[in-house]
Every structure is written in C-alpha cells, then in structure tokens.
C-alpha cells in the first residue's frame, strides 16, 4: 500500500520546515495546506524535478509560522 510521509521540523523560534514524500503532483502542497491550515505563512517552496514532470514523488516546502 503506498505510503505518504511528511516530515515537519519546528525550529527554536517556531518556524516549520516541511518535507513531503509519496505524494503525486501538487497534492503535496495541498496536503501541507490541509495539515497546517491558514495559520502559517509560506516563505519558501523548493520543488524537485519530479514535481515539474508531474510524476512527483517528493517536494520540499519551507514555511514559517505567522506570529
């Protein structure tokens, strides 16, 4: 059964770095939005080559909590 994984790293100031694996296309961003809601401001998004090829199995987002 396919597995989806999100790794959240919360730094000392409460900012979050999120890395996803096992998602297809933009669903990784949607999953993060659903998980973190509107309480965060995304300040940076890094995507993999696979993301742009629509065969994505991994994308990486860096977001920061709105204070």
């Amino acid at each position: 059964m396919p597995e989806q994984q999100i790794t959240l790293t919360i730094d000392e100031e409460g900012a979050i770095t999120a890395k996803t694996a096992g998602f297809k296309g933009k669903s990784c961003l949607e999953a993060l939005e659903k998980l973190l809601g509107n309480t965060t401001d995304i300040i940076q998004v890094k995507t993999t080559d696979e993301y742009h090829q629509q065969q994505t199995i991994e994308c990486k987002n860096t977001i920061k909590q709105r204070n």
Binding site: E3, Q4, T9, I10
Partner: peptide
C-alpha cells in the same frame, strides 16, 4: 491535526529542533 487526518506521528528532538515524522497509507 496530523492525527485527525490519519497520520501516525513519530517525534524526535534534533539539536534543539523538534522533528515530527507523519506517515499514513493511502
């Protein structure tokens, strides 16, 4: 929120940062 969405949660502390590994089967 992760648990509510069906993820299992594993937590680690890495050099003062909190790492949460969320996993679910689809």
């Amino acid at each position: 929120e992760a648990k509510a969405q069906g993820y299992s949660v594993k937590e680690k502390n890495i050099r003062g940062k909190i790492q949460l590994v969320l996993t679910r089967s689809v």
